[in-house]
Design a protein around this nucleic acid. Sequence first.
DNA 1: TTAGTTAATTGGGTCGTACCAATTAAAAAA
DNA 2: TTTTTTAATTGGTACGACCCAATTAACTAA
Lengths: 242, 242
Amino acid sequence: MADLVYQRIIKDLTRRIFAGEFAAEMKLPDERHLSTEYQVSRSSIKRALALLANDGIVFKKRGSGTFINPLYLENQSLFNYEGSNLGITDNLQMAGKKPGIKLLEFAVIPATKTLQRDLFLQSGEFVYQIKRLRLLDDQPFMIEESFIPIKVVPELNQEIAGHSIFNYLQATKKQAVTKSFLTIGAAPATAEDQKLLQLKANEPVGTMAGIFFLDDGTPIEYSFMRMHYQYLKFNSFVAIEP
Amino acid sequence: MADLVYQRIIKDLTRRIFAGEFAAEMKLPDERHLSTEYQVSRSSIKRALALLANDGIVFKKRGSGTFINPLYLENQSLFNYEGSNLGITDNLQMAGKKPGIKLLEFAVIPATKTLQRDLFLQSGEFVYQIKRLRLLDDQPFMIEESFIPIKVVPELNQEIAGHSIFNYLQATKKQAVTKSFLTIGAAPATAEDQKLLQLKANEPVGTMAGIFFLDDGTPIEYSFMRMHYQYLKFNSFVAIEP
DNA sequence: TTAGTTAATTGGGTCGTACCAATTAAAAAA
DNA sequence: TTTTTTAATTGGTACGACCCAATTAACTAA
């Protein structure tokens, strides 16, 4: 993973940032200095910094320097899309917790109108309906209901659904889920939410609904997630062109 | 705008894509061909294509080519972020509702340690503390507490704070807010939330905390927002590198 | 024909140079 | 001292060279 120069730089700079090495000035050394320090070209440094800036970890001011985004230090996102997959399982491992999955339901149903549109299916096609409870260190935190077209993984079964489906796809078909379109929201907890997520009466759930795509643009899954509100920390860096 | 090479390429390629020039194969010419065609270096072509891929307009497959994302042609609005400003007011106008602002508090306070760090202020600098209730069609939906450095807009007063500050900045200083770093979450409603937002006992609030930046990277505002949960709908297109 | 191998195609990564543009620091002038 | 001018600093853009890696097309052998 870190065999590429710019990825190595990103990894190390991120580590140093979170270790507080630049906390005094909240500013990174200039590009030319980093270039000689890491013994790589300035181009590679620029590439690494550009990606860090794109994630909102740092931001650059021409003529002034590259500065650390202080908010990023505070809120290390639960859904910190690093690595090679967008799946929940993978990202939570990075948070240092042990992810778990409890399969609640597993069925095959005809795709509804909405699913046909969202997953680009023809009328009459079928999808898996998979309801799972996600755990962190054996503590439930999210209810996930997923719909996956049968034609994508005809061999899917309860055994596979008990683990990370994205990991299975990547292992067997070498197809990584690299894009997603999500809608984040909040809602009062239902009775089921309260029971499964161990919520008190007035505690809400965070919701995430969205489509996941393979690298080639194929929509592969529609998911609706309800999670313990304390676990919904979604960081977003938005930049629009002037 | 289009005086830069890669921006010129992006603009022209986008035009050609939507004109259907490549609709037959849904594939762009290879990078080396584009390089000679546009009489620019392959590096610039790569840069342009990388940005197009980043927006989900095309996707690249090593060894195969650069392909047009059919989803983008079919449902452009899904991926597009329109507008020239990030402010709440502006975006909600698009939803067709009439935005309103009720000023709750307006004060000048010394920047706290956290604010000093988040807004890159020196010790001893002052900020406006502005608490506002946001309305849509005269219906309250969000409590917003903002902190803006005095030095950015020394002339700010209660009159101005009663309207969109971002619009004021753009109108008077020609400085648009083009970047933001937000953390989205959910929380149970406090007594104040319930009163101001007319929430029932078990109904939660959505929270958004973040920094807003000018185009040049200057942090201009730290905001903490608590909104009626039905109004928290945050769309996010995430793509990671394979 | 089929299966396996090789070559060509195509995007990816790295390096280094050159110059530009915005900011800041230093120096000079008022 | 204050203001203005100049120089140094720092990120931005562009170019082109070189090689790598994944895919596809062409070729070869069974």
